[in-house]
Design a binder for these strands. Structure first.
Lengths: 209, 209
DNA sequence: AATATAAGCGGGGTAAAGTCCGTTTAATAT
DNA sequence: ATATTAAACGGACTTTACCCCGCTTATATT
């Protein structure tokens, strides 16, 4: 008759078979992608390959895009750790403008390296794939304010700069002629630097006594 | 036996019945959207509503997204005309920085007003929906170079600024809390102004003799 | 007016995402 | 060890975009 003493604990850890099956599914997905590319990863084929039912696939990942999001997640976490506690200028310690430039360079490279998965991880519904909160917009906002406390509309600017940074690699420079990822990386990185350095006052040595 | 004397004329104008059916389909789509929203516009339902076969719908518009692209097209053309030959500062004649600010304001409003259709017009494949060429990136590039001929990487900057301008309204400020379109429009317009005016040297009266 | 032909048409067929619900089972309480 | 139950499972079912291809017709040519 007693109710559990801690009725509000987290919703009870994932069952062991569920965790095992998730790994099976992710492994199967990785193999299928390596063999035939993302397009051939259908929910039916993935379920069969992993020896599970289709319902299980949807229960685990919600949507097709969810599978690809899960595949990127580990790398994304590593990336965020470098940003939050790695060496400067990407990590804390450097001048905010330098950190913004470094973040852009790293993010562009990350997205271009993961572009196939990242594109497949975009939901056909509303927003871009974010792990609960939008780390990029958040981080950009913080650095923008640090670089210039008097900046108007930091929220809006953070949103726009996030789009400027992440849109082109995800769409792989949607416009005009095709470019190699190498050329794209260089072009975008340099453009980002220009954008950031012009947008924010350079902190020259003369500024600090 | 003779082949046509002008074998390379354009591929022969659209047949009258085809044009008529296209209008019927667009009318039907508009009605269905007004009544039940874009999601209920399925290819089967649209075909039936217009009294045509499903194959005809695909022949006319290629994909589902193509229908929504066609619905926006007229408005998009009007917009481009205002930009190319309307009154300044949106049209030609004003200072490039002013034109960039004006273009951003107009584009943000346009995309927010059309956001439902515009989102539905995005293909689940690669690029964002563009009418053959990417007018926004092109226009931004021209104005950027006019405003500052020494700007490095105008191509990359144009691509990034296009993403900064069009991404947020299309994704409707994907991140954080929901905002009303009104608030969104104001926030983005002001942010765009800040971005452009900081990015480019203000043309002060003193600069011109 | 008759003919030729490329364009258009229709609707059944396929593939794939996502839903539903009855059955099974891991984890926990007794 | 047994009972309990919430979670997990599986696979049939539904929905929808998109393909295919034999038939029809508008238009141009003679």
């Amino acid at each position: 008759m007693d109710r559990p003493l801690v009725p509000f604990g987290r919703p009870r850890a994932e069952r062991a078979d569920a965790a095992r099956n998730r790994e099976h599914l992710l492994d199967a997905a990785r193999l299928m992608i390596a063999e035939h590319g993302v397009d051939k990863v259908t929910m039916d084929a993935l379920a069969e390959r992993a020896g599970l039912g289709k319902g299980t696939v949807f229960r685990r990942f919600g949507t097709r895009a969810g599978i690809f999001r899960a595949l990127i997640e580990a790398d994304e976490r590593r990336f965020q750790e470098l940003v939050l506690s790695g060496p400067p200028p990407l990590g804390p310690g450097a001048d905010p403008v330098e950190r913004l430039v470094a973040y852009g360079r790293a993010r562009i490279r990350f997205l271009l390296e993961h572009r196939t998965l990242a594109r497949a991880a975009i939901e056909r519904g509303q927003p871009l794939p974010e792990g609960e909160v939008d780390m990029t917009a958040l981080h950009l906002r913080v650095l923008l304010v640090q670089a210039d406390p008097d900046l108007g509309e930091p929220d809006g600017l953070a949103i726009m700069l996030k789009a400027a940074l992440e849109g082109p690699p995800l769409m792989f420079l949607a416009s005009d002629e095709p470019r190699s990822p190498r050329e794209a990386e260089h072009l975008l990185t340099e453009s980002w630097r220009t954008l950031v350095e012009r947008l924010l006052p350079q902190q020259t040595p003369a500024d600090r006594p």
